[in-house]
Design a binder for these strands. Structure first.
Length: 111
DNA sequence: GATATGACCGCAA
DNA sequence: TTTGCGGCCATAT
């Protein structure tokens, strides 16, 4: 087998980490990168999601920035889709913001 | 090869 | 709360 390129290994790890986010929870870019074994590589996560092909079953909508805010620009269909899907999973999105204390992947189940 | 940009992060003021 | 700075990697020009 041909040796996998470092880049392909990284994006694959990130894709797996994003797919591992449970429904009703959200993860930060840095958190996903860390879960993928790539600390400080938050930008890699953003790069993968931005280049994510349509038709992907990846729950990219569960990935938000460290401030609990949606990174997509306001007025974008993707942004509305992300909010709608998160709310459908039980995540409260207020003003484009999410309480990571409650819905963060590392947040307690009850509060 | 170098520069600029990007769905980012953390800290400091 | 916002802004600025440095750090990290890949892509486009």
């Amino acid at each position: 087998m041909a040796a996998p390129s470092p880049t392909e290994t990284r994006d694959a790890q990130i894709l797996l980490a994003v797919a591992a986010i449970p429904s009703g929870r959200v993860a930060t870019y840095g958190g996903v990168a860390l879960a993928a074994g790539l600390p400080r590589q938050a930008r890699l996560v953003g790069r993968i999601l931005s280049r994510l092909p349509a038709g992907s079953t990846l729950p990219w909508h569960r990935v938000v920035n460290a401030q609990g805010r949606l990174s997509l620009p306001a007025g974008s269909a993707e942004r509305e889709t992300q909010i709608a899907r998160l709310r459908d999973e039980g995540v409260e999105v207020i003003g484009g913001r999410i309480d990571l204390r409650r819905f963060g992947i590392d947040a307690p189940a009850a509060l």
